[in-house]
Design a protein around this nucleic acid. Structure first.
Ligand SMILES: [Mn+2]
Ligand SMILES: [Mn+2]
Ligand SMILES: [Mn+2]
Ligand SMILES: [Mn+2]
Lengths: 219, 219
DNA sequence: ATTGATTTTTAGAGTAATCTAAATTTCGTC
DNA sequence: GACGAAATTTAGATTACTCTAAAAATCAAT
């Protein structure tokens, strides 16, 4: 039905649309897919032909209901595989994205529903991202950037906004993981860097670049 | 390094070479791959170029050591995934081949070594086929076709030579599975069909076509 | 509103895999 | 050893995806 490449494009469009509310531009897709704008235009024509996206030349694109469903399902598969890799195969959270990028394209409904059951119907992946259920519904949570919390406040790490290997390895090195309790001990006005305590055991200074990519639940 | 298609061709060549001792013919590969002889010739040139097969026009092919290693590794991945699907996700043995056909191409050494450990280093897959270890070595067993056993003899089912869905479903229906104890109660000279008892509980008549595809250990 | 920069599309071409039909080589039998 | 059948290769196309370079459209700033 859909090729892996077509699926990847739909996912890219979904993710861009998720953060920017307007029509998704060719260049934005090219950047996300690490490909040329010309290749993107080719694919947009194809996806439009298949009625997976709304596309008007020079105006950007958005997903049709069918396209949205396909993208959501791909994300579901990706995140379920990530849970499998971390919870069952004991991979570290920075090792799983690339592998899931391949596994997500395996085409079997039965496989995914059994995997979901095997993992006990997880609602979030190892990076704290919500896993859509079989109907495509995401579990919503109130979450706030660590960078938006104030001094003396405490919270629990719910997720990360970035899945870059080096970023995740950095967090691991300073003992930050999902569920960690972080208290803001101080803030430097100049660069917005934070001095924090982690699980009341460790004390670290983190840059704004880091604190903006950590999602928290206020405690 | 290798595309999924190239890997599939190498596996096909390996499997044909395994049963017929001579050079593997273009037509045999075409049949195994369900593709045209012309496509096979194209691919043989490519694989030869990459030094994965020895190829002489009109003379058939065989695997080089590199090609053999690649094929063996693919078979290892395929069979490990089948064990996962049956033992962990509770698929029936007739449901897993197609899915493993996709999973086998996922490219991650780390994934396979962790999967192997997670499954407890299985030596045989759900159809009784040996799983090569990381060095490519297969575990060998003395096994005999059920069709070659004589009346009154008893044995244990070690595996099947065929993974056709309909064949496996048929075996399941008559209560034959890996580990079943089968005793030959009688043989019809005319068509070599067998009357057998299964686990001392069931009695069935099976055709030669079936008995030739069941591998046994004499008891 | 013109102009210059940016974005997007088109043109033209390349690689990987596939096909059918035609040409060529090999095999098997007399 | 000749000859017809079978197997194999070559020729020529097609589809999916990609690229660079050039053309066209849009945006943004004066
Ligand atoms: Mn992908
Ligand atoms: Mn994730
Ligand atoms: Mn395969
Ligand atoms: Mn098998």
């Amino acid at each position: 039905m859909l090729t892996p490449t077509e699926e990847n494009y739909l996912k890219a469009i979904f993710k861009i649309a998720e953060r920017e509310k307007k029509a998704v531009s060719t260049n934005a897709i090219a950047k996300q897919m690490k490909t040329s704008a010309a290749s993107v235009t080719d694919m947009l024509k194809k996806l439009s032909e298949k009625e997976l996206i709304y596309y008007e030349k020079y105006k950007g694109v958005s997903l049709t209901p069918t396209g949205n469903k396909a993208a959501t399902h791909l994300i579901r598969k990706h995140r379920l595989w990530e849970v499998f890799l971390v919870n069952k195969l004991r991979f570290a959270w920075h090792q799983v994205h690339e592998i899931a990028e391949e596994l997500e394209h395996i085409d079997s409904e039965e496989l995914i529903s059994r995997l979901d059951a095997f993992l006990d119907y997880p609602k979030f992946d190892p990076h704290g991202d919500p896993i859509p259920n079989a109907d495509g519904r995401f579990t919503l949570r109130n979450q706030i950037n660590l960078s938006d919390m104030s001094v003396t406040q405490t919270g629990i790490v719910l997720g990360v906004k970035e899945s870059e290997t080096e970023f995740l390895k950095h967090l691991t090195k300073i003992n930050i993981k999902l569920g960690s309790e972080i208290t803001i001990l101080g803030k430097t006005d100049f660069d917005q860097s934070l001095r924090i305590s982690i699980d009341t055991k460790y004390e670290e200074v983190i840059s704004q670049k880091v604190s903006q990519s950590i999602l928290m639940k206020r405690k």
